[in-house]
Design a protein around this nucleic acid. Structure first.
Lengths: 220, 220
DNA sequence: ACCTGAACACCGTTCAAGT
DNA sequence: ACCTGAACACCGTTCAAGT
């Protein structure tokens, strides 16, 4: 064990993994992913950028640890609907994942850009597959359901946070879209305009999630 | 009209939007998104980086144009299943989108990071909504179906290309996962291991797409 | 009109040297 | 053991000046 702060020898460290991670998450919320640089983080911790590399080998490692931490407690959502069947549990898990990503600025982008193998995501994955197996789904369908729900949730939340950051009112920007569509081309988009520019991302997410659940029900 | 190369005055330009865009796409395929810098692109075009800004106001604008170009012809996929019903057409459109993103290195990342309002994506969106409306779906469900299918497709392909770039054999890396899972925790992941480490991303995509189609069928 | 040269204000990362 | 200082090899973007 030659990892940092292993014994009481030497100066007490001004840095540690946990505090660095927390400061990084705070900085993410304040400034967004593009402004989350090793130098800005170092400044927030009152050290030089080089010092951070004692605790995270690369910035990618830091981002992975951030993604892992975002998923803290998400798997517990399966236990919430006590008497719930598989569909209620799976719905609760997907909602909890979206909520966790939405809870931090650029949360979906951070998650999509990393590949954690920590206990929070593995625990989440195990829980989802477990719910499906307990419901009688074969192992391969249970595994595929995990990916489908997770990929949809990430894809949706990526779009949702991007639209929020762009300042769009809803899934599509009303101003831009209305002008283009009014020209006469895209008649179907014109018909869908109220929904396309609606602000209700939650309803959009629930729609897609419901499709997946119904599709799984049909397969069972 | 004071845009570049408007009249025959002055030196013939060594640069233009179309050639720059094509070179950028070629460079993307050769080097990947992280190595696609304005300086590297300029070098490939034998100019200095500053010259590119006469044709694209920002790098983000260039990436948006790249994403738009990737979607070229994707909407045509709806016409392919000639006698097909809405479900076959929607399936064809989703497959065509995934194929288009897979066709270029980091295609999904480029697409997810931009927000084109060009005729290729608007045409794609209009076509998808049109297929759903023609099938009798109400306008709001048609619009939501578009987002659900698109967000799932982007989310899936993002994961697929990330796994390919990581060199994983399948959706999850066998080596890493097998070790962690063998420890005894995550019993459900252990059961799903064959599928989780399977190399068949196409099958995974088709599974999710089928769930969405079946969910839509149930709603209609 | 189109491009160069040079700068501005940054990046992630490394590593000898200090304490 | 832990951090600084300084460097390396880059970024995106701007803009006066050349041709």
């Amino acid at each position: 064990m030659s990892s940092p702060s292993s014994t009481g020898r030497g100066r007490p460290p001004r840095l540690d993994r946990a505090r660095t991670l927390q400061t990084a998450l705070d900085l993410l919320d304040r400034s967004g992913l593009d402004a989350l640089t090793m130098r800005q983080l170092a400044e927030a911790m009152e050290v030089r950028a080089g010092a951070l590399y004692r605790y995270f080998a690369t910035k990618q490692d830091l981002l992975t640890a951030m993604a892992e931490r975002m998923m803290d407690g998400v798997a517990d959502a399966a236990a919430e609907p006590c008497g719930g069947d598989w569909s209620e549990r799976l719905t609760a898990l997907a909602r909890a994942m979206r909520t966790a990503l939405l809870a931090r600025r650029d949360g979906a982008r951070v998650f999509a850009g990393t590949h954690s193998t920590g206990e929070n995501i593995l625990g989440f994955a195990d829980t989802v597959v477990g719910v499906m197996r307990a419901a009688g789904f074969p192992d391969d369908d249970a595994a595929r359901a995990l990916y489908t729900v997770a990929n949809f949730t990430v894809g949706h939340t990526l779009e949702e946070q991007a639209a929020l950051q762009r300042g769009d009112a809803g899934p599509a920007d009303p101003g831009v879209l209305a002008d283009t569509v009014a020209a006469g081309k895209y008649p179907h988009l014109q018909a869908g305009l109220p929904t396309l520019t609606s602000t209700d991302f939650t309803r959009l997410f629930e729609f897609g999630l419901d499709l997946l659940i119904e599709g799984l029900r049909a397969r069972r």
